[in-house]
Amino acid sequence: MDILSVLFILAGLFFLIVAAIGVIRLPDVFSRAHAVSLTDSLGAFLMLVGLALHEGLSKNNLKIIAVLALLYIQNPVITHATIRAALRSGLKPWRRESS
C-alpha cells in the first residue's frame, strides 16, 4: 500500500514540476494559465489519491475528498476569471509568427 501511495505522489509531483517548467517556458499569461491548470487537474488529484491511500480507511479520507471536490469546482472559476480579466483589459494573446 505504501509503495502504491508513493507512486501516486511521485506521479503527482511529475505533473507539478512540468507545470512549473511550463509557467517559465510559455510566452504569455493565456498559455501559462494552461500550464497552471495542469497542476490542479491532475497534479493535485494524484497527490491527494496518494495521501488517501497512505491514510487508509479513516475520517481524513472524507476530508481529502472534500478538498478534491472543492478544487475541481473552484479552480476552473478562478482560471476563467483571470483569463477573462486579462482579455477584457485588452491584452492580446501571443500568436506564432509563422502562421
Partner: peptide
C-alpha cells in the same frame, strides 16, 4: 464552460458576448 476550463489546454475566456 467549466468542463472546458477544467481540461488542460483549453480555457473558457468569455460566455456572454458584450465585451
Amino acid at each position: 464552460g467549466n468542463s472546458i476550463t477544467l481540461t488542460p489546454g483549453t480555457i473558457t475566456a468569455e460566455i456572454d458576448h458584450d465585451v
